[in-house]
């Protein structure tokens, strides 16, 4: 449990030509297998930080190494990195409405060619694991909010990632579904030994993690404790 999967140093990210300073020198370290919550009020820079870790965006300055990949130096398209190492879950707009639950789970695997049959079986297995074995052919509009997020959880795991990044995954759920999804995430995380980063503005949700990193105005509030 001592290997660092994320090392961030002095990350700065600004928007609108520097007028908005979303991240103002964030440093943190996260270990392999940990479940970490990034908590803070709305606008504190949580999503910005998660987007940097998720290689969806690049910092203006600072150092960032995720799963052995230097994301600041790396100049090429980071899609491959995301496909190999990450599972992403968002608050909304996770799923493609026209596709069935099963097809949505398979979407990450269509980015690359190859071995379809086993992946299909794995996707089915994952849907079963998140308790949706009887809804594999339902489309998102026919699913409840909690069920949709469970599909997103299955999708995030289909590529056997090292790291799951979830941005307010329960932000639009009632408390019962919220608990279901959080429990599921924690179970799968320990089962598979992956690292989980959970972004939330809700301290209660953050409590489900091993460790909480607090953000305020683009800065880490509580010092990183290993």
């Amino acid at each position: 449990m001592s290997e660092k999967i994320i090392i961030a140093k002095d990350l700065v990210k600004t928007y609108e030509n520097g007028r908005t300073r979303a991240l103002d020198g964030v440093s943190l370290e996260i270990f392999r297998g940990e479940a970490v919550a990034i908590c803070g009020p709305s606008g504190s820079g949580k999503s910005t930080l998660l987007n940097l870790i998720g290689a969806l965006d690049r910092p203006d300055s600072g150092e960032l190494i995720v799963a052995g990949e230097n994301l600041v130096r790396q100049r090429s398209d980071l899609a491959d990195f995301r496909a190999r190492k990450l599972g992403l879950i968002f608050q909304l707009h996770n799923l493609i409405p026209a596709l069935t639950a099963l097809e949505n789970v398979l979407i990450p695997t269509l980015g690359i060619n190859g071995g379809r049959r086993e992946i299909q079986a794995q996707a089915k297995m994952l849907l079963e694991r998140v308790g949706l074995h009887d809804k594999t052919h339902r489309r998102p509009p026919e699913l409840s909010g909690g069920e949709r997020q469970r599909v997103a959880v299955a999708r995030a795991l289909v590529n056997n990632p090292e790291l799951i990044l979830a941005d307010e995954p329960t932000g639009s759920l009632d408390s019962k579904s919220e608990k279901q999804v959080l429990d599921l995430l924690r179970e799968l995380q320990t089962e598979r030994g992956v690292t989980l980063i959970l972004v939330t503005h809700d301290p209660r949700v953050a409590q489900s993690a091993d460790r909480v990193i607090e953000l305020l105005d683009g800065c880490v509030r509580a010092p990183v404790a290993a």
Binding site: D77, A79, R82, R84, L88, I96, I107, P108, G111, I112
Partner: peptide
């Protein structure tokens, strides 16, 4: 398309 890119599809794909 944003989702596709986020879950690892390349531009080319």
């Amino acid at each position: 398309i944003g989702i596709l890119r986020a879950v690892g599809w390349r531009r080319w794909r």
